[in-house]
Write a protein that binds this DNA or RNA. Sequence first.
DNA 1: ACACGAGTGAGAATGGTTTTCAAAAGCAGG
DNA 2: CCTGCTTTTGAAAACCATTCTCACTCGTGT
Lengths: 148, 148
Amino acid sequence: MTNTDRDRVSAAPSSPEPGALRPTRQRTAVTEALGTVADFRSAQEIHDLIAGHGEKVGLATVYRTLAALADAGVVDVLRTEEGEAVYRRCATTRHHHHLVCRTCGATEEIEGPAVEDWAGAIGRTFGYADISHELELFGTCPKCAGAP
Amino acid sequence: MTNTDRDRVSAAPSSPEPGALRPTRQRTAVTEALGTVADFRSAQEIHDLIAGHGEKVGLATVYRTLAALADAGVVDVLRTEEGEAVYRRCATTRHHHHLVCRTCGATEEIEGPAVEDWAGAIGRTFGYADISHELELFGTCPKCAGAP
DNA sequence: ACACGAGTGAGAATGGTTTTCAAAAGCAGG
DNA sequence: CCTGCTTTTGAAAACCATTCTCACTCGTGT
């Protein structure tokens, strides 16, 4: 139920393409805010970011927009230890993972073909189909390790 | 306050080792409930499970006990897509991962020394210290693939 | 049995996220 | 520039998992 499942009415006189989002001031503000930061941010932080920039966008709209973007694969979502959702616009839309500094939040995008293969092999071993996986690394970045 | 000052005991008589949990009816109920299921369950589901068994344990206590068990490494915790925490008593307390059927929730415990090494190597490459990682596989188990 | 701290539970509080719904904005055609 | 239709928005309320509060009970060592 967390899906952005809109009922696309086929009776629409001249309905455009399905799934086409209307470009609005608010949505622009969200994507721009995402562009100004390099690490994962919560919806509320993004909301504050926009506010600090002078614009005013409702929190609900930020959540909606973020969900839509995540849905479209434009942003990556992951959950903090506490279960809070954090978002980040990634350089690539391709499948990849992250190495996140648990102190400052700095993030590196990483790929691991070996892991992908390994996951597939494990799946086959157990007879599981349609294997997918979630993998995130956490650590302390050089900067934070140097100056605690 | 009627301070019966005779207990000037600096070495508290009744606080021996830290981390020693007192065995109570409630805690037994929780661990037993965990023993009757093979897959990951939410705190509330476990609470219901206990209730269905005739026992009555407060939800808050279930949460507390689960947290303690997770803390002790006796149960594994992971987050569902929606951010809900789910718990499972695993066969081993050693570090491992899971292959979870996304249809029926059946779970296999898996180990991947190669992945551990890979994670460490990645960390070193980027100069990150104290590398840890979260990894879960999802798929469709043979049973569910056969009879949808 | 006694005392005292750990453990418990009902309900309130928290806090992130979603929903509601009426008003505002977009879009296409007249 | 109007008109009718749909999408989007936002403030506040609803939701819901989880945690906290606090008076009370239980387990344990003496």
